[in-house]
């Protein structure tokens, strides 16, 4: 049997990539531009993985947060239909707790994970450059009780020196899954590679169940990302010497 595989669309579950992006005022300029461009550059690869994956289709959902959380995708979309065109707001508030509550409300079979064939546990990538300005702990605590969250691959990006890495590691469950990025080139490369590696793993993983430690698995995937990401350090050094270009991260 080979022909029907080529003549029919594959029956597939869905794996959703959740991008949770801080759009508070401090993200304005080069940071948010870099996030936009990195995601735009990544979506073709995610689309490719999705099309060539017999197990699952990959969809993307994006939540931004500043004063209020806002879904940029009213429901998860195919990678090919996804557009990253974020703007940072003028507000200084970084209400991560509210974002956690909003995310928790959509991590459900009756919400964003509603598919006929079923859903794989998602990948959740959080990007932030600052300190939460609300009572993030109660929102995060609620999120931590969500079974989809428990089974998700979780990675955070600490953008710049002011990012609160402790809070981000509370979100992911490990300091090993918080990636510190201090310039556009590194953010761009790592965001792309983390997206590809985690989505490739999670959209094929039939072994991630209640007993599997998703935090340890996330750590492994971040290690793999570091091993496979090669950045031209000369370019990075050049960039460091030109803080105007990279917004003095």
């Amino acid at each position: 049997m080979a022909e029907l595989n080529n003549l029919t669309p594959p029956p597939r579950k869905v794996m959703t990539m959740f991008y949770i992006v801080d759009t508070s005022g401090s993200m304005a300029g080069r940071k948010i531009e870099t996030v936009n461009s990195a995601l735009e550059n990544t979506k073709a690869q995610l689309d490719d993985i999705s099309k060539n994956n017999d197990d699952a289709e990959i969809k993307i959902a994006m939540l931004t947060f500043d004063y209020e959380p806002t879904w940029q995708t009213p429901k998860p979309v195919k990678a090919s239909d996804f557009h990253a065109n974020l703007n940072a707001t003028e507000y200084g508030l970084t209400n991560l707790g509210k974002a956690c509550i909003e995310l928790e409300s959509k991590l459900s079979r009756s919400e964003f994970l509603e598919t006929k064939a079923g859903a794989y546990p998602p990948v959740i990538i959080l990007l932030s450059d600052g300190d939460p300005t609300d009572n993030y702990a109660s929102g995060l605590e609620k999120l931590k009780h969500n079974n989809w969250y428990k089974r998700a691959i979780k990675v955070a990006f600490a953008i710049g020196a002011d990012a609160n890495k402790k809070v981000l590691s509370e979100f992911t469950g490990s300091t090993e899954t918080v990636i510190e990025v201090n310039n556009a080139k590194v953010l761009s490369e790592f965001l792309k590679n983390v997206s590809v590696i985690t989505s490739e793993f999670q959209s094929r993983s039939t072994n991630v169940g209640e007993t599997t430690d998703s935090v340890k698995q996330s750590e492994e995937l971040v290690k793999e990302t570091f091993n496979t990401t090669t950045i031209d350090m000369d370019t990075v050094d050049d960039a460091k010497s030109d803080d105007d270009i990279f917004g003095g991260w």
């Binding site: 029907l4 595989n5 594959p10 029956p11 597939r12 064939a117």
Partner: peptide
């Protein structure tokens, strides 16, 4: 069809 049904159930519901 006979060989495709197991593919549907494996990758589907």
């Amino acid at each position: 069809v006979k060989e495709y049904l197991p593919v549907i159930t494996k990758n589907g519901k």
